[in-house]
Design a protein around this nucleic acid. Sequence first.
DNA 1: ATTGCTTCCTGAGCGC
DNA 2: TGCGCTCAGGAAGCAA
Length: 266
Amino acid sequence: MPELPEVQTVVKGLQANIIGKKITSIIEIRSGTVSQKFDSKITGYGTIEKITRIGKYILIDTDVGLHLVVHLRMTGKLIFKQQDLHRPQHLRALIEFYDNSVLYFDDTRTFGSINIYRKTQKIPSIQMLGPDALSNDFSSDYLWQVLENRKAPIKNLLLDQSVVAGLGNIYVAEILFRAQVLPQKKARHLKHYEVKRIVAETKKILPEAIKHNGTTISDYKNVDGKSGEFQNFLRIYGKQKCQCGENITKIKQAGRSTFYCSKCQK
DNA sequence: ATTGCTTCCTGAGCGC
DNA sequence: TGCGCTCAGGAAGCAA
């Protein structure tokens, strides 16, 4: 389940491997995976210039004014290979380069996508996003004013990409645990110091996870096909016992599993 | 405006 | 061995 740290790790890997490569073709293996979001006729995709991340979106810019916008959703993987040999089982699309190297888009559950836009176009899904969790715009002042009068549980709002971009189920669980806030607590009932802690813990945990190449629970892999290591540092998600000795409670919230410690989180 | 439910999909894990 | 069930979850779409 790629969230901000996993996407950032993929971006790093892409930067190391495909900058400067000329795209010869983009092949869709499973229909619906790739879509061209502009009218004009394609005359080549150009050469990759820049790769960035906004929230959980990967933006691959080319020198002919295109943006390839990739979202991995739950099981999407971008795997770079020097040659197009040994295609993965759930290959949904591939990008071929002039030097015969390839970028595979492998996605078991098929929710991921590659959308291609002109750089001048507005990208609706990205325009909707709130500040990136690692940007200075995601501050405790910002979050405090967003949460004001909101009745939804704090967890749901942290998962809402229009509130803050980049967080998913795993990191929200870890952030709320470290901030000592119960996930089901209504947003408007949070104290100012709790909001401050949430933001502070977010700014701590995400870079830690990036340092460890993200979290691999089941599917996530970086561009080399390697797993992350941050799963070894999780304290609450998927755990049964808290470090304080208390049993961890597991509930369903908004259709997602939520883990918390009723002793450590208030 | 906000909220919360359903949908998309496949593979793993489980009980029988 | 194999069947059927449940679960995992990001975000869009929709209903209240």
